[in-house]
Design a protein around this nucleic acid. Structure first.
Lengths: 357, 357
DNA sequence: TTGTAGGCGTTATCAC
DNA sequence: GTGATAACGCCTACAA
């Protein structure tokens, strides 16, 4: 049988002090209010009884749950596991735990999860899901909830955020393709109600302009979400309108994977016929065939930084400063991008070293 | 400014009843103790005030947190996201949320996370991490904690579990290779302190025997964990001892991915020189080069079933029955397994349809 | 059917 | 420096 978990009362009794004193002795913040001798006796008793503070009771009293709500579109997107590891590892260091919620890019589901987490009295939110006009953003402002955006930005709201410099990244992608001799470059753009979609499109436009390359009608196709299926659809549409494209800058790796599928369908070879570059450099992208060129950033670090910013905001009584943090993107060139049709349809080498980057 | 969240008291006052009555009216289990008219008035008041029960207070009182501890080795393993989606989706339907903990296959970390979750008074555990002799298993029995094993089994403990039939799956893998004409088949075995490692090795042995195939010394190599790096190491070792192997049955897809790396190093072609088959059919395995043959099971469903079993145990006052659930494995043949050197080194077709299975 | 009262375990605010 | 007291919001015997 299980014996009852020791309570603060028990510790106090064992140490011969009042529960209030025991509480003070055990809490780092108030330990200095108590005589050294007493503190020692209490700690000892606590140790001996295997005392574990009851976080539920503590939460009820302090109105702090040490729990963080984390909203992401879909855990199955390989981008998120490393980000979440970073987030949870860092949160854990500060005594917080994450409550994970998948929204499947569905506003009503987002609302549901958000409300449930509020009901559970989370101390703050990390949002990796917010479309730019999601109603929960305004609501979070209204309710003065600590919020940090992860891999998102929202200029209209006073939220701290961590993300990669998307514009710079997409410019680098275009520069890479241009350096390989490509001039007819298409773009599969992300959803324009998500900050990354907009920023990467801007980066694409700027990149093209700065290289003196034209963007014709239909040379940019808009995905409605970041999924493989949308990638297939958009690539089909893009190549139907512009069969002469030799390269595609894709706003996201999931879309790029879909792009591979469409090229297969059309009997086009990547990279011989069409070069493809993605964005995010998700895990396993180096093991596709061909290995996907992409724009990399430190996913894990994005998570740790998000955690740090949120805790900063929570523990600063007044809400603390709003910080917008950008991580530097890094171009990773792999097998999916090649020089423009140098030798027309030269045979592909059978095996090439795998870039583990 | 934020107005105070309405409390049960407020609702009661607004409805002109005592808080106790309001509580009864609002709780499905006790609603029948209250007159229909009163119940209506209370619900209405609750609605109007936007009342949300405070789960912290409720937990303190009922000693149920509606929170489940979930231990996995590492979220970065692509096997887990779909399982967790299944788990969390189903838990959510019953009003539970998951607290996720990564152990990195480290016993001391496992201990740490386990203790923290116990301190947070989780109502039960889903363990996808347990080595067969992990101390937390005995502790969970001792403390009468509801536990369900996910993708694991533990014969020595009275825990419900959900997993794929690993023996059957690995037998099928061997049968597949044998049917392709292979006779010299190696095995990269999983860690033998994890149930899947043992079961799959058993399956391999049985499969070989039932096809009349011999297993020489060194034809089975043991991985110390399910990682890509271990896959590389084991494949090297295996092929160093048995350069004449024409096929490898690998106990896990991560190991199989590592196996690809080792074959690359050695200048061996998969599948022309060596066929490889994995286990789990993780996401994206159909997009490797070559697409990996594997043993599939429904990851999402594994999660939902684990949730169901755990809730069953929690809500049955007496602990409920122990159930051992096996999902059926399914062979997925892709490009990494080919008939035994039919035409010696025939050229590989340049492009083949991608199996999405 | 409804009200009363007490307590879940902790901490904040007083007093001493 | 320490003790007493109350309260966080809810639920549940028990009494009426």
């Amino acid at each position: 049988m299980v014996e009852r978990q020791a309570t603060l009362r028990d510790v106090a009794t064992a140490a011969g002090v009042h529960p209030a004193t025991a509480s003070r002795a055990l809490n780092p913040g108030t330990k200095l209010l108590v005589s050294e001798e007493t503190a020692r006796r209490v700690s000892e008793a606590a140790e001996r009884l295997g005392y574990r503070p009851n976080p539920v009771a503590r939460s009820l009293r302090t109105r702090r749950s040490h729990t963080i709500g984390v909203l992401i579109p879909d855990l199955n997107n390989p981008l998120f596991p490393p980000m979440l590891r970073g987030l949870e590892d860092r949160l854990g260091e500060y005594g917080y735990v994450a409550l994970l919620g998948n929204t499947d890019t569905d506003l009503s589901k987002e609302r549901l999860v958000f409300d449930q987490m509020r009901a559970r009295h989370v101390d703050g939110f990390v949002l990796a899901t917010a479309t730019r006009n999601s109603p929960i953003l305004a609501e979070a402002v209204e309710a003065e909830l600590p919020v940090v955006l992860m891999n998102r930005t929202a200029e209209d709201y006073p939220f701290s955020s961590v993300s990669v410099d998307n514009e710079q990244g997409e410019r680098a992608a275009v520069a890479h393709l241009a350096a390989l001799g490509h001039t007819r470059i298409g773009h599969i753009a992300g959803p324009q109600d998500i900050s990354t979609g907009v920023a990467r499109l801007n980066g694409f436009n700027e990149g093209m302009r700065s290289h003196g390359l034209a963007i014709a009608e239909g040379q940019v196709v808009y995905a409605s979400n970041y999924s493989i299926e949308e990638g297939v659809r958009c690539a089909r549409e893009l190549l139907a309108a512009h069969g002469d494209l030799t390269a595609i800058a894709v706003a996201n790796d999931m879309l790029a994977v879909g792009c591979y599928g469409a090229l297969d369908e059309l009997g086009l070879d990547c990279p011989q016929d069409v070069s493809v570059i993605g964005f995010n450099d998700m895990p396993f992208m180096d093991r596709l065939r061909p290995p996907l060129s992409s724009i990399r950033f430190q996913h894990y670090q994005l998570g740790t930084e998000a955690a740090r910013l949120l805790i900063e905001r929570i523990e600063a009584g007044d809400g603390g400063p709003v910080k917008i943090l950008f991580l530097a993107p890094e171009l990773v060139a792999r097998g999916s991008t090649a020089p423009l049709a140098s030798a027309p349809s030269a045979p592909v080498p059978l095996r090439r070293g795998r870039d583990r980057g």
